[in-house]
Simulated assay, not measured.
Amino acid sequence: MTTYLVPLIIIGGLTSAGVYLLLERHLTRMLLGLLLIGNAINLLILSVGGPSGNPPVHGRTSDGETTTADPLAQALVLTAIVITMGIAAFVLALTYRSYRINTIEEVSNDPEDTRVSQLSGKEDDDIEERPEPDASRDTDLPDELDALPGFEGSR
């Protein structure tokens, strides 16, 4: 099997550019990174799929080829294209909603995550204790909120 170096370099370049863009804080750059990685994966599937050949239809030939092309790689690429476009539409919707709500596109640190990470850095003595459950309420009988209204006597 002959391995061509140029498609592998293109796949590596697309993947590295996609990962770089995914690590950015802007949502449109993240979307572009996802699209680049999706295209790199499609090229990888096609290059690994084997050499070209006759169409996988009985009785059809193409320029005197002796082997039949593997249809699995083409089907996987078509499926990957559909999945990539669905993810792109979802990320575009998230970007649009984030921009409409915040009027900024950059993803910032979540204040709650910052607070939790600061708490985890403190010692265990500084963190307040969890309250113990009330043993008198811990029964197998249904609570008032467990049953729907009108069905109290159904049990």
Rank of each mutant, 00 (worst) to 15 (best):
M1C: 10
T2L: 14
T3K: 09
Y4D: 05
Y4W: 10
L5T: 06
P7H: 01
I11T: 02
G13N: 11
L14W: 06
L14G: 03
Y20T: 07
L21A: 04
L21K: 02
E24Q: 12
R25G: 00
R25I: 04
T28R: 09
R29L: 07
M30D: 01
L32S: 03
L32V: 08
L35N: 07
L36H: 03
I37H: 06
I37S: 08
N39S: 14
L44V: 03
S47W: 01
V48G: 04
G53I: 01
N54R: 04
H58R: 11
G59N: 05
G59W: 00
E65W: 11
T67K: 15
D70Q: 02
L72E: 06
A73M: 00
A73I: 00
V77L: 05
V77I: 01
V77H: 00
L78Y: 13
T79E: 11
A80V: 02
V82F: 14
G86T: 04
I87K: 04
I87E: 01
A88Y: 00
A89Y: 02
A89E: 01
F90A: 09
F90K: 09
V91D: 02
A93L: 14
T95F: 07
S98Q: 07
S98H: 11
I101P: 03
T103I: 10
T103A: 13
E106L: 13
V107H: 00
V107L: 15
D110Q: 07
D113P: 02
D113V: 10
S117L: 11
Q118G: 10
Q118I: 10
K122Q: 11
E123R: 11
D125N: 12
R130Q: 15
R130P: 02
R130S: 12
P131A: 13
E132I: 14
P133D: 06
A135I: 08
D138E: 12
T139M: 06
T139V: 03
L141H: 09
L141K: 10
P142E: 04
P142F: 03
P142M: 02
D143Y: 12
D143G: 14
D143I: 06
L145F: 07
D146T: 00
L148K: 06
L148M: 12
P149I: 01
P149F: 03
S154Y: 09
S154N: 13
R155E: 09
